[in-house]
Lab assay of single mutants.
Amino acid sequence: KFGRVHERAEGPAKILAIGTATPFHWVDQSSYPDYYFRVTNSDHLVDLKEKFRRICNRTMISKRHMFLTEEILQKNPNLCSHNEPSFDVRQDILVSEIPKLGKEAVLMAIDEWAQPKSKITHLVFCTRSGVDMPGADYQLIKLLGLSPSVQRVMMYQQGCFAGGTMLRLAKDLAENNKGARVLVVCAESSAIGFRGPSEDHPDNLIAQALFGDGAAALIIGSDPKMGLERPIFEIVTTAQTFVPNGDCHLALHLREMGLTFHCTKDVPPTIAKNVESCLIKAFEPLGISDWNSIFWILHPGGNAIVDQVESTLGLEPNKLQATRNILREYGNLSSACVLFILDEIRKKSGREGLKTSGDGLDLGVLLSFGPGLTIETVVLR
């Protein structure tokens, strides 16, 4: 008597548009150690500064975009301390800036989509910054002038794996609601975790050397309108798992001094060791076991992770080039990073006149991972 209210779509979910945005301000990685130790009044920690310089040199990052300028840091000195309470200051900045950054990426996506924004039916927003109620999803709806009846899902504090999570959720929403057009937004800022150095917490140096700011937005829907919408990728399958006891290797915690970062040297080999089982589960039903026969979007948690995944799986050097390019130009953008790589690989395919948006290949994989050593596996066509 009370059956399904919403009719299912006929076809699989497809990515119809991609937009990205970054803050205008950026830092050069080669000179960042001098800048970082100067603005945090830590130049007296000579040995720690040299250690940080070595870490920065190993990241293979060229530059990173950041909202925090020297002027902002001078006005808010607690942000430059390692342990002073600064959460309220971070909140005041990020509750406002995260939706604005997301808006810039959304406008780029809508411009490519070339359809009225009134056709957006759902919003899925993800960030690890600016936790608030009502959330960044609500603020973004107002900034864009979208209908208050847009169906919203707000996900805070997920971390680097969440780019894949957003695709998984959007696929379910698009395929189970005929005519749905799902706006996916990942907006991230390193301002939540920026803090001064400490000899007692070397993990913090890794975070300060890796993370950048950026937002990515996608429009996802099934059954694209012929002649009006141009699909870029099809989302074939999605899956999530985590490595048992992985939280002892990688975890982040909200504290009075901001978001703290805990990471062990076992993260790269542990991820590399567990990736292939995810690939087998995803691609065995499709008859694929040659990992060089697919295109790759791999989250660059750090250069060591990229190198070890490449080595463990025997990947050809060009397979992870898009990942390395984004890491070099932006650093680790947390949940937004794989979506930047997705954009990079389709643009490169277009520039080179390849037959598909995925490096000329039919199928590919998007792998994202993060806290708890959670792994998201997304098969794309």
Rank of each mutant, 00 (worst) to 15 (best):
R4L: 14
H6P: 08
H6W: 09
E7L: 08
E7P: 04
A9E: 02
A9K: 06
G11Q: 09
P12L: 01
P12D: 07
A13P: 02
K14S: 12
K14Q: 15
I15N: 01
L16D: 02
L16Q: 00
I18S: 03
I18V: 03
I18L: 03
I18C: 04
A21M: 03
A21N: 04
F24Y: 12
H25M: 04
W26A: 09
W26G: 09
S30T: 14
Y32M: 13
Y32E: 09
Y36G: 11
N41A: 06
S42V: 00
D43W: 13
L45F: 10
L45A: 04
V46T: 13
D47A: 08
L48Q: 01
L48E: 10
E50G: 03
F52W: 07
R53A: 06
R53S: 10
R54K: 11
R58S: 13
R58T: 02
M60C: 15
I61R: 06
K63T: 02
R64S: 04
M66Q: 11
E71F: 06
E71G: 07
L73I: 15
K75D: 06
N76S: 09
N78D: 11
S81D: 08
S81T: 13
E84Q: 13
P85M: 04
P85G: 12
S86W: 06
S86P: 07
F87Q: 00
V89G: 10
Q91D: 11
Q91E: 07
D92W: 04
I93A: 11
L94R: 14
L94W: 13
E97D: 02
E97Q: 15
P99H: 15
P99W: 14
L101S: 05
K103D: 03
K103L: 09
L107R: 14
A109R: 06
I110G: 03
D111G: 08
E112L: 05
P116F: 01
S118H: 02
S118A: 02
K119S: 11
I120Y: 01
T121S: 13
H122E: 03
F125G: 04
F125D: 03
C126W: 13
T127W: 06
R128V: 06
S129M: 15
S129V: 08
V131P: 14
V131G: 07
M133C: 02
M133W: 07
M133V: 09
P134T: 11
G135W: 07
A136H: 00
D137F: 08
Y138W: 12
L140D: 11
K142R: 12
K142Y: 14
L143N: 09
G145A: 14
L146P: 05
S149T: 06
S149L: 09
E229A: 04
E229S: 00
R230K: 06
P231F: 00
P231R: 01
P231K: 02
P231G: 06
I232G: 08
F233D: 05
I235R: 06
I235G: 03
V236R: 04
V236M: 02
T237S: 14
T237C: 05
T238K: 02
T238V: 09
Q240R: 01
P244I: 00
P244C: 14
P244G: 11
D247N: 08
D247R: 10
D247F: 06
H249Y: 11
H249K: 15
L250T: 15
L252C: 01
L252Q: 15
L252P: 15
L252V: 08
H253I: 11
H253E: 10
H253G: 11
L254C: 14
R255H: 10
R255E: 15
R255C: 10
E256A: 09
M257H: 06
M257L: 07
T260Y: 14
T260E: 11
T260M: 13
F261E: 15
F261D: 15
T264N: 13
K265T: 08
D266H: 05
V267D: 13
P268Q: 05
P269F: 06
I271R: 07
A272S: 04
K273Y: 01
K273R: 09
V275R: 01
E276F: 00
S277F: 04
C278Y: 04
C278I: 12
L279W: 03
E284N: 13
E284H: 05
P285R: 13
P285I: 07
L286W: 08
G287N: 01
D290W: 01
S293F: 01
S293M: 01
I294R: 04
F295N: 00
W296N: 00
W296P: 12
W296H: 01
L298T: 00
L298M: 14
L298C: 03
L298K: 11
P300M: 06
P300V: 01
P300E: 04
G301D: 14
G302D: 11
N303H: 07
A304D: 14
A304K: 08
I305A: 12
V306D: 00
D307K: 11
E310F: 02
E310H: 00
S311G: 09
S311V: 05
T312A: 06
T312L: 14
T312P: 09
L313E: 03
L315R: 05
L315W: 01
E316R: 05
N318Q: 13
N318K: 12
K319R: 12
K319T: 05
L320M: 09
A322R: 02
A322F: 09
A322W: 02
T323G: 14
T323S: 10
N325S: 13
N325C: 12
N325F: 06
I326Y: 00
R328Q: 11
N332G: 06
L333G: 14
L333W: 14
L333R: 06
L333T: 09
L333S: 12
L333M: 10
S334C: 13
S335R: 02
S335N: 13
A336L: 04
C337Y: 05
C337R: 13
C337E: 14
V338P: 14
V338I: 10
L339G: 15
I341E: 08
I341V: 08
I341P: 00
L342S: 12
L342H: 07
E344M: 10
I345Q: 09
I345R: 03
I345F: 08
I345A: 06
R346V: 09
R346S: 03
K347D: 01
G350H: 00
R351D: 02
E352Q: 00
E352G: 07
L354E: 03
K355S: 08
G358H: 03
G358M: 08
G358Q: 06
G358K: 05
D359P: 06
L361H: 14
L361D: 15
G364E: 02
G364P: 15
V365M: 13
V365C: 14
L366P: 15
L366W: 02
L367T: 15
S368H: 13
S368T: 07
S368I: 00
P371M: 01
P371Y: 01
G372H: 14
L373W: 06
I375L: 09
I375W: 15
E376I: 00
V378F: 10
V378M: 12
V379A: 15
V379R: 14
V379Q: 14
L380E: 15
R381T: 04
R381Q: 04
R381K: 13
